[in-house]
Design a protein around this nucleic acid. Structure first.
Lengths: 342, 342
DNA sequence: AACAGAAGGTAAAACGTTTAATTTTTGCAT
DNA sequence: ATGCAAAAATTAAACGTTTTACCTTCTGTT
């Protein structure tokens, strides 16, 4: 392995000079600069990043603390972070809590959660990361702020306590989607929500209500039913909504929308023609089911990229970004909302 | 940040002693050992991994070179690698080539591919990784062996040249699946393959033929049709197979199986009762479609874990593992092959 | 009482960098 | 030629570890 020292020897200069050249510092004659560059190339020199980090006391690296790498949205967010880091020559290292693998959909109790985070964070800090991005799925208290508060921290996709967070804009997406249903001719819109205590469920509900209000369509609470994000609840509640005579159903996630689809096909309701249906999340299944499901795509990549931007700004300038950044979603119209008749 | 030095001062010993204790070396009185451990705990000491790696000349870290993180199987493989590393106190760092994002389903030309790999590998080597696992989707020549051959290297999910590779066992899975179809009563099995030059397609085909042979069922080449992994080809070719009077269809991936499903529902063929259908890959969609699709699950996690085991053995013992490790798949029976009648 | 040997401990060098302080070289005006 | 500032290059220390070689201090044996 070529080192700065072997280059120095070969080029007959001191290691300090080599270091300057390699770091683009001024104060080196153009001639020697070229010589050194050539030698470095020739020896296939690669800087030892560990040595650099050691000297600097900090690595040009951020840590990514992911609740679960194998959950559908995580890789895309990481991809965004990676691109954001790349732009400024930062690297990232990944710590995976494997929460979903370990505990399924239920979150672990706070103590267990904290212990896992602490362990991962200790490793990251051992590697001298300059900051950490937490990729989580929910909003919660993270009980380690006190201990690690010297460390720049940003939340992606979720919100944690008082940390800068980057999330998507549920409510606006929901507003726009509702507006679209109205434009398409719906006037009785049924909604199937997530559990009552879910923040996402609440903001999506707000979006719908605001849109109805703005368009002077009365909001009928009887058409809003509480599901649990699972397919079965979609099936069950769709039946009720159909009985109530809705001409559009907004399922607050794609999963439940699949249940609605099942119910409709069982009852012979033609989704897309007789009934408009939208989901939320833009999971793969939306393109696979028939009719294809109109839905809302989350700005996952952008969340990652923005979070990276925030953490890097926090690192280099020390100034905290806005506490909450909301990124816009995009409505994706597919067959389940395109009304074939005029 | 507490260092070995601050511990030494606080405990009134030399840093060498502290180092010994922290590394579990012998030759330290139990009393001092406890003292040092206490002080370390108290100061919240975290070893500086960069310094360690620098001293050692190598990091206890492996590099993961992934063709594309956002492709469905990659995260699960990484998860397996992570667990494998964890067991022996190794870490990993991720380099993502973003091949799919950049080039879609077509591979880049070899020169571009090599350049991307070289760049990523240089970064990994700058971090002194002890070895590299390549996660790819295809089998190909990787043109950098000559340059980096000092570096332990293992391929996961794909095979590359003469490198140790960990893959899943297509052929056996295909054999088993065919056997199952036969047991369920099928005697005219249609197969929809991938492109003719695909290795996976060939081995899956072999599995089917061997199973037919072993069970004394004649193989009718007219019932094997060549698709292109895409849903549309499944639809199109299913029609031909149904016309030919098959009572089971084996689509070589889930995607094409979805096309078959479409075709069947268009023609009013009851999948699961009148016709058995299986796919391959166990994508999410298999549980979402109706009837749910029987398919073959790939041992992604195990591939990762095994690859990690191989690279670690290669690192610590220098002895290369078997050139090709094939891991078994598991057949997952769902509604599309369970024949309701006796 | 002397001493070998073991046990416990330490000093110092090294890993590959960066950087502040310092020295040497260069170019230029006198 | 001489002096002097600016430019170019060098020296040496430091980052946090590990490790080799060495030095004390015991312990037990003769």
């Amino acid at each position: 392995m070529a080192t700065i020292r072997s280059i120095a020897k070969q080029a007959n200069v001191s290691i300090a000079t080599v270091s300057k050249v390699l770091n683009g510092k001024t104060g080196v004659k153009e001639e020697t600069r070229q010589l050194i560059l050539n030698v470095a190339q020739e020896l296939n020199y690669r800087p030892n990043l560990n040595a650099r980090s050691l000297k600097a006391g900090i690595a040009r690296t951020i840590g990514i603390l992911a609740e679960d790498l194998t959950v559908f949205n995580t890789p895309e967010i990481i991809d965004g972070i990676a691109v954001g880091c790349d732009r400024v020559g930062y690297h990232y290292i990944l710590a995976n809590l494997r929460l979903f693998k370990r505990f399924g959909h239920r979150m672990p109790d706070p103590a267990t959660h904290a212990a896992l985070i602490r362990e991962a964070l200790d490793t990251l800090l051992s590697k001298q990361v300059a900051g950490v991005i937490y990729i989580g799925s929910h909003s919660h208290q993270v009980p380690l702020l006190a201990e690690y508060n010297e460390l720049p921290f940003v939340c992606a996709y979720c919100t944690c306590d008082t940390l800068p967070s980057v999330v998507y804009d549920d409510e606006t997406a929901s507003y726009d989607l509702t507006e679209r249903l109205l434009q398409n001719g719906a006037d009785r819109i049924g909604m199937i929500t997530g559990p009552v205590d879910s923040l996402h469920s609440m903001s999506r509900g707000r979006g719908l209500m605001r849109a109805l209000y703005d368009h002077r369509v009365p909001y009928n609470p009887a058409l809003t039913l509480t599901g649990d994000w699972e397919r079965d609840s979609g099936y069950r509640l769709a039946a009720q909504l159909l009985d109530a005579g809705v001409n559009a159903i907004y399922a607050q996630n794609d999963n439940m929308a699949m249940g609605v689809l099942d119910c409709c096909s069982a009852r012979g309701v033609a989704v897309g023609r007789e009934l408009q249906l939208v989901g939320f999340d833009n999971r793969d299944i939306c393109q696979v089911c028939r009719p294809r499901l109109s839905t809302v795509a989350l700005p996952l990549f952008e969340i990652g990229q923005t979070a990276a931007g925030h953490i890097l700004k926090l690192i280099s300038e020390g100034e905290p970004p806005a506490l909450l950044t909301k990124l816009p979603c995009t409505f994706i119209e597919r067959e389940s909302t395109i009304r074939k008749e005029g």
